[in-house]
Amino acid sequence: MTDSCPLPDDDRGGLRMVLAVPLVLLTLIAGFFCWCALTVRPNGPWDDGAYAAIVLSCLLSASAAAATATLWLLPWVRRVASWGWATPALVVGGVAAVRWALLEG
Protein backbone atom coordinates (compact mmCIF):
# COMPACT_ATOMS: atom_id res chain seq x y z
CA MET A 1 0.00 0.00 0.00
CA THR A 2 1.38 3.38 -0.94
CA ASP A 3 1.39 6.22 1.47
CA SER A 4 0.43 9.09 -0.79
CA CYS A 5 -0.89 12.39 0.31
CA PRO A 6 -3.25 14.07 -2.13
CA LEU A 7 -2.06 17.52 -3.16
CA PRO A 8 -4.53 20.34 -3.41
CA ASP A 9 -5.53 21.01 -6.99
CA ASP A 10 -5.48 24.77 -6.67
CA ASP A 11 -2.59 26.13 -4.63
CA ARG A 12 -2.33 29.35 -6.58
CA GLY A 13 -2.38 31.62 -3.55
CA GLY A 14 1.02 30.54 -2.29
CA LEU A 15 2.56 30.54 -5.73
CA ARG A 16 1.09 33.97 -6.42
CA MET A 17 2.77 35.33 -3.30
CA VAL A 18 6.11 33.81 -4.30
CA LEU A 19 5.87 35.25 -7.82
CA ALA A 20 4.74 38.62 -6.51
CA VAL A 21 8.16 39.23 -4.96
CA PRO A 22 10.22 39.42 -8.19
CA LEU A 23 7.40 41.08 -10.12
CA VAL A 24 6.98 43.81 -7.51
CA LEU A 25 10.74 44.28 -7.04
CA LEU A 26 11.32 44.64 -10.79
CA THR A 27 8.42 47.09 -11.01
CA LEU A 28 9.86 49.16 -8.16
CA ILE A 29 13.29 49.15 -9.80
CA ALA A 30 11.78 50.25 -13.12
CA GLY A 31 9.81 52.98 -11.35
CA PHE A 32 12.84 54.29 -9.46
CA PHE A 33 15.00 54.57 -12.55
CA CYS A 34 12.16 56.13 -14.52
CA TRP A 35 11.74 58.70 -11.77
CA CYS A 36 15.49 59.39 -11.93
CA ALA A 37 15.31 59.82 -15.70
CA LEU A 38 12.41 62.26 -15.38
CA THR A 39 13.89 64.36 -12.59
CA VAL A 40 17.46 64.78 -13.83
CA ARG A 41 17.74 68.09 -15.68
CA PRO A 42 20.86 69.00 -17.64
CA ASN A 43 22.27 72.48 -16.99
CA GLY A 44 22.84 72.99 -20.70
CA PRO A 45 23.76 71.23 -23.91
CA TRP A 46 27.30 70.83 -22.59
CA ASP A 47 26.21 68.77 -19.54
CA ASP A 48 27.25 65.34 -20.81
CA GLY A 49 27.11 63.81 -17.33
CA ALA A 50 23.42 64.59 -16.91
CA TYR A 51 22.62 63.26 -20.38
CA ALA A 52 24.52 60.07 -19.62
CA ALA A 53 22.63 59.69 -16.33
CA ILE A 54 19.30 60.09 -18.12
CA VAL A 55 20.22 57.53 -20.77
CA LEU A 56 21.45 55.06 -18.14
CA SER A 57 18.31 55.53 -16.04
CA CYS A 58 16.10 55.01 -19.08
CA LEU A 59 18.05 51.90 -20.07
CA LEU A 60 17.83 50.40 -16.58
CA SER A 61 14.12 51.20 -16.31
CA ALA A 62 13.36 49.68 -19.71
CA SER A 63 15.49 46.64 -18.85
CA ALA A 64 13.66 46.05 -15.57
CA ALA A 65 10.34 46.38 -17.40
CA ALA A 66 11.50 43.92 -20.05
CA ALA A 67 12.59 41.48 -17.34
CA THR A 68 9.14 41.77 -15.78
CA ALA A 69 7.47 41.11 -19.12
CA THR A 70 9.77 38.17 -19.79
CA LEU A 71 9.02 36.68 -16.40
CA TRP A 72 5.30 37.18 -16.92
CA LEU A 73 5.42 35.53 -20.35
CA LEU A 74 6.40 32.20 -18.82
CA PRO A 75 3.34 29.93 -19.00
CA TRP A 76 3.46 28.84 -15.37
CA VAL A 77 3.62 32.48 -14.24
CA ARG A 78 0.72 33.55 -16.47
CA ARG A 79 -1.36 30.75 -15.00
CA VAL A 80 -1.29 32.33 -11.54
CA ALA A 81 -0.58 36.02 -12.20
CA SER A 82 -2.91 38.08 -14.34
CA TRP A 83 -1.70 40.69 -16.81
CA GLY A 84 -2.32 43.34 -14.17
CA TRP A 85 0.86 42.27 -12.42
CA ALA A 86 3.01 43.22 -15.44
CA THR A 87 1.11 46.31 -16.58
CA PRO A 88 2.64 48.88 -14.16
CA ALA A 89 6.19 47.88 -15.10
CA LEU A 90 5.37 48.02 -18.81
CA VAL A 91 3.82 51.48 -18.47
CA VAL A 92 6.84 52.75 -16.54
CA GLY A 93 9.20 51.20 -19.08
CA GLY A 94 7.23 52.85 -21.87
CA VAL A 95 7.53 56.24 -20.16
CA ALA A 96 11.28 55.73 -19.84
CA ALA A 97 11.53 54.75 -23.50
CA VAL A 98 9.65 57.90 -24.53
CA ARG A 99 11.94 60.01 -22.32
CA TRP A 100 14.96 58.40 -23.95
CA ALA A 101 13.56 58.92 -27.45
CA LEU A 102 12.75 62.58 -26.80
CA LEU A 103 16.09 63.32 -25.16
CA GLU A 104 17.72 66.36 -26.69
CA GLY A 105 21.42 66.71 -26.85
Rank of each mutant, 00 (worst) to 15 (best):
S61D: 09
A67W: 03
C34Q: 13
W35Q: 09
A65I: 02
C58S: 06
C34D: 11
V18L: 15
S57G: 07
R41V: 13
V55R: 07
L60K: 02
I29M: 09
N43D: 14
I29V: 14
V24L: 09
D48M: 03
V55P: 08
L59I: 10
C58V: 06
P45A: 01
L23Q: 11
L59N: 11
P22S: 01
S63Q: 14
V40E: 09
W46D: 11
I54K: 00
R41Q: 15
S61H: 04
S63A: 05
T39S: 12
A50V: 11
Y51D: 03
P42L: 00
V55D: 15
A67Q: 10
A53N: 14
V21S: 07
L56V: 10
F33E: 12
N43G: 07
D47V: 05
G44L: 01
V18M: 13
D48L: 08
A30V: 07
P22I: 05
L25F: 12
D47I: 01
R41A: 11
S61K: 00
A65F: 09
A53T: 15
V40Q: 08
L25I: 14
V55K: 06
S63R: 10
L38Q: 15
L56P: 09
A62F: 05
A66S: 11
A62N: 03
V40D: 09
A20C: 10
C34W: 13
A50H: 02
L56R: 10
V18G: 03
W46I: 00
C34V: 09
A20H: 15
L19R: 00
V18S: 03
A67P: 01
V18W: 12
P45Y: 05
A66H: 11
S57F: 10
R41Y: 09
L19K: 01
T27N: 07
A52L: 11
L59C: 06
A67G: 06
G44K: 01
A20F: 11
C58M: 05
S63H: 13
A30S: 14
S63N: 11
A52P: 13
D48V: 04
I29Y: 09
D47A: 00
